[in-house]
Design a protein around this nucleic acid. Structure first.
Ligand code: FES
Ligand code: FES
Lengths: 160, 160
DNA sequence: ATAATAGCCTAGTAATTCTGTCAAGTATTA
DNA sequence: TAATACTTGACAGAATTACTAGGCTATTAT
């Protein structure tokens, strides 16, 4: 459940490659394709969307390719994914384009909403720079054993 | 992005209705259907899966319906969703049934993995009892203004 | 100039998943 | 034995996903 489409996944990996060349000239689609095992044609589609959003720029002609428009620590994973897959919307009720008829009285609306906000917070806090530095692993303060539903209320608190 | 299927959503809402009758006899599919606006036929499919997993039991014949097999505070939302939609697997690489060929060297594997673990932690900590009591809203300690990628490292810490 | 390089853009499509419906059961109780 | 209620499997239309194909445009080195 809660799968990300390949477009989002490939997009992040492509952005990683472009970021890895930050300050050292453009990266071509072909390079990305080879390093990340994604077809050139598919990458074109993906990078096109990302370019239109302004987070990368293209350089045409020989020696061309793609470069980041901003520093790697100012491009978040959340931003990339939102561009490629739309906003986080656990349910269609939370999708700005759809909306919900029976919000009031709905017993789960707030549940999905707060989960979505947490996910978005996570994705927005993680940047390309983190990936470059290998900071994918997030610190978990206490490792819990024998997790029991309802017994660990603290897990519901998200600290900022 | 990251949508939950209707099966999962309806499943949780159906379980809420069954939980609301806990200790007061069975709830029929028809009742759930009316209160939650889901067709009887579709609910049958959903409840069947949940029954096979053991978290609810059915009572046949007149006056029958469904009852919880455990107290509402011992059935988590995560458990319900896992039964209906399979394990949390942001990417197919994280899906136990699929697996990944290029885990080592993959720059995003751990990212998706840790996100998945956080989501699962959230869902496993939330129970039917919380829904019954209206505890869907999760405390967020500090509300952040002008969120900037990379500037709020603390957001990456999940406290237990 | 012009050829080579590299990105740009639009369609289309096969496969899969989602979101249900339908119909013919079986079990239980008043 | 009639009424209630769950059980099961098949199936179909709609939507989405995950691509591929093919032609076009811009830039630069020679
Ligand atoms: S039905 Fe839309 S919020 Fe629950
Ligand atoms: S490709 Fe499977 S983990 Fe990244």
């Amino acid at each position: 459940m809660l799968k990300l489409s390949t477009k989002g996944q490939y997009g992040v990996r492509a952005m990683f490659e472009i970021a890895s060349g930050y300050g050292r000239g453009p990266i071509t689609i072909r390079e990305i394709s080879e390093k990340q095992d994604v077809s050139v044609a598919y990458l074109e589609q993906i990078l096109n969307k990302l370019r239109k959003s302004g987070m990368i720029q293209s350089v045409k002609g020989p020696g061309g390719g793609y470069v980041l428009s901003r520093e790697p620590d100012r491009i978040s994973i959340g931003e990339i994914l939102r561009e490629l897959e739309g906003p986080v919307a656990i349910t269609s009720c939370l999708d700005p384009k759809e909306g919900c008829l029976r919000v009031e009285g709905c017993v789960t609306h707030l549940l999905w909403k707060s989960l979505g906000e947490k996910i978005e917070g996570f994705l927005d806090a993680m940047t390309l720079d983190d990936l470059l530095k290998g900071n994918q692993v997030i610190e978990i303060k206490k490792k819990e054993k024998n997790r029991q539903p309802g017994k660990n209320r603290a897990a519901l608190t998200f600290v900022r």
